[in-house]
């Protein structure tokens, strides 16, 4: 573990222990180590002693905001669907949040999914999380049995090999173009603040836009061809909290249930479109996908347009409206057919 990560881990543990011991929070949401190299598990610490299991490293790829609404609800005293909310303050939750995770908390605040007064946010500036799949590719099919994180390198070793790769070369695509790696809201700031400067935030999207339509269609269909419809992308996403997802609607059934190409395509289009203007590009969908589909590019295109057309970036201001829940009289409408009165 690199020194920075070790220090951040220590500080997270200390703060979590302190908050749990003092009774300020009822649960602390962070990460604990996984059973394989380069894996971590989201973890809920409920006793001060659990705090020692918390860790911080470059493989904390899931977005913890995803767990917040359900975790907050689980801490409320049980009540019937028609009972009024309990009087008095409700138990609080502590959570570790990087730039994107904190932005997702802001989106959840805008959409009334979480109550800020019930959150204690430990902000951590992200150095960019590492994509396990990129490391695997660098190991050329050999199983990594141990991965050690240095300051700027990753030491990967297996049964009969050892290699050192540049950490930045294995960082996830979304982190490479992230402009908000510092938390936008937090109660405590942990670790060094990053001052990374990013250019060409949408370069990946521009490259696809430059392709002819047929090539784009081929890219899209090839990308989603291996989809098994496990919905890991949807379930890893902190924006997805509808009680009934559109894929589960049966009348009308928007999306068929098998892996028919048209159904898979519709699933990905509609899933991405539901995230339009709300996606913080946290990359959890891509990190969760067992098949390695780069579905982040779909939501990224929508973010780019929301930014260019409406000047909107998701999750920066708790008071702002999500861009698709509002309008301006002078919104662009060049795409419309308007016949002039003769």
């Amino acid at each position: 573990m690199s020194d920075t990560n070790a220090k951040i881990t220590e500080e997270i543990r200390a703060k979590a222990r302190e908050l749990l011991s003092s009774g300020e929070i009822a649960a602390f949401l962070g990460f604990t180590s996984g059973s394989l190299p380069m894996t971590t598990r989201p973890f809920v610490a409920k006793r001060p002693g659990d705090a020692d299991k918390l860790i911080w490293n470059s493989f904390c790829v899931m977005n913890l905001a995803n767990y917040l609404p359900a975790l907050l609800e689980s801490l409320e005293p049980p009540r019937g669907p028609k009972d009024p909310p309990p009087a008095g303050p409700l138990p609080k939750v502590g959570v570790v949040a990087t730039g994107c995770c904190s932005r997702n908390i802001v989106v959840q605040m805008q959409e009334r999914q979480v109550d800020r007064s019930r959150l204690v946010i430990l902000g951590v500036s992200s150095r960019g999380m590492v994509d396990r799949k990129k490391v695997m590719a660098a190991a050329e099919g050999r199983e990594p049995l141990k991965v050690e994180e240095g300051g700027h390198t990753l030491k990967v070793s297996g049964r009969d090999y050892e290699l050192e790769i540049d950490r930045w070369s294995a960082v996830r695509d979304n982190c490479l173009t992230c402009a908000h790696n510092n938390p936008v809201i937090s109660d405590y700031l942990i670790g060094p603040v990053s001052n990374r400067d990013v250019k060409d935030r949408f370069a990946q999207i521009e490259a696809i836009e430059a392709m002819p339509a047929n090539a784009r269609w081929k890219w899209f269909t090839d990308e989603i061809a291996s989809c098994i419809r496990c919905y890991a992308c949807r379930n890893a996403c902190p924006l997805c909290y509808c009680p009934t997802c559109f894929v589960d609607d049966s009348r009308p059934q928007w999306v068929g249930k098998s892996t028919e190409p048209a159904d898979t395509a519709l699933f990905h289009i509609l899933r991405a479109f539901h995230c339009a203007g709300r996606c913080t590009d946290c990359g959890a969908c891509e990190s969760a996908c067992p098949m390695g589909i780069k579905m982040r590019l779909f939501t990224r295109k929508l973010s780019k347009d929301a930014f260019n057309l409406f000047g909107a970036e998701a999750g920066l201001d708790p008071q702002a409206q999500p861009p698709l829940a509002t309008y301006r009289p002078d919104d662009p409408e060049e795409f419309l057919i308007v016949e002039e009165k003769k």
Binding site: R41, P42, V44, Y67, I228, C230, A232, P290
Partner: peptide, 23 residues
């Protein structure tokens, strides 16, 4: 504790060779 981190996605069941449930 086991179910807390679970996303409830179907990655495990769909990749599992012995998960055979259908609709």
């Amino acid at each position: 504790g086991l179910s807390e981190p679970c996303l409830n996605c179907g990655a495990c069941t769909f990749l599992c060779p012995t998960c055979y449930c259908f609709d």
